[in-house]
Amino acid sequence: MMDSPELLFAVEVAVGGLLSGVMYALVAIGFVLIYKTSGVLNFAQGAMVLFAALTFVSLVERQVPFWAAIAVTLVIMAGLGFAIERTVLRPLSNRSPMTLFMATLGLSYVIEGAAQLIWGTQVHRLDLGVSNAPFEVGGIFISTFDLVAAAIAAAMVSVLTLFFRYTRTGLSFRAVADDTFAAIAVGLRLGRIQGTVWTAAGVVALVAGLLWGARLGVQFSLSLVVLKALPVLVLGGFDSIVGAIVAGLVIGATEKLAEVYLGPFVGGGIESWFAYAVALVVLLVRPSGLFGKKLVERY
């Protein structure tokens, strides 16, 4: 039990920030998966989060059982990821990173529009059956939902880490990420690997979409959660899953503490840009982020 109410409050702000950071990391992991194996910053990840949540909730509202809806959405998201790789990115392979980034930017508008065209523009409630009501731990309120989200994020990171370390496909991903040309030279099938990783990004989008959708409601604003993921990526490194988690926690806690303790001096409402300010400083000092692979280029 902490003695000072002010200290207790500061701890509560930090804990709240850490739990928010887990949610940011969930979105960031989708970016990392794609970047790690193909070098593409997939700006459409937010739109994929929206598409996944909207598809799931629309199926449930049409009386499809919960787990069946999860399964169908998984298949749809895997198919979407695979289709994106085949129809957009593969034809653009060997183009500049900026070209690929612009392609995903355009893709995000196409997916957002398609999601609204297929499922409509209404706001939906998404109930995962996890209570949002808080319980008290040493004077600090914590919601069950936040803990479940953190557990899911931890499980996802563990599975991905094991997958990359111990499975044949995961090792292929790493080989491609380390040296694409060498990977091709030893017979790895680049197209299949990238198709699989886009499929995995679709699955990660579903997990993020369900958790964010349960918190915000399933609506267009879900696609804006990418704005929370970008500073996380800069801080953690674009190619590190562990970096996404650690940076998510750092960004979450930092922005909340800044909002509470610095905000009142500058009129409040600073947390949205404060995370970017932190990311900018990191970019200047450590361009590859805290956990990103350092690039060494010789001229």
């Binding site: 920030g17 739990l19 915000l216 509470v260 600073i270 947390e271």
Partner: peptide
């Protein structure tokens, strides 16, 4: 008076201030 930055999809800091 407490501001929520646009679009408002994250408000934990503001509601902790409110609780205080």
């Amino acid at each position: 008076q407490i501001e929520v930055p646009h679009p408002g999809n994250e408000q934990q800091a503001q509601w902790l201030q409110i609780r205080r």
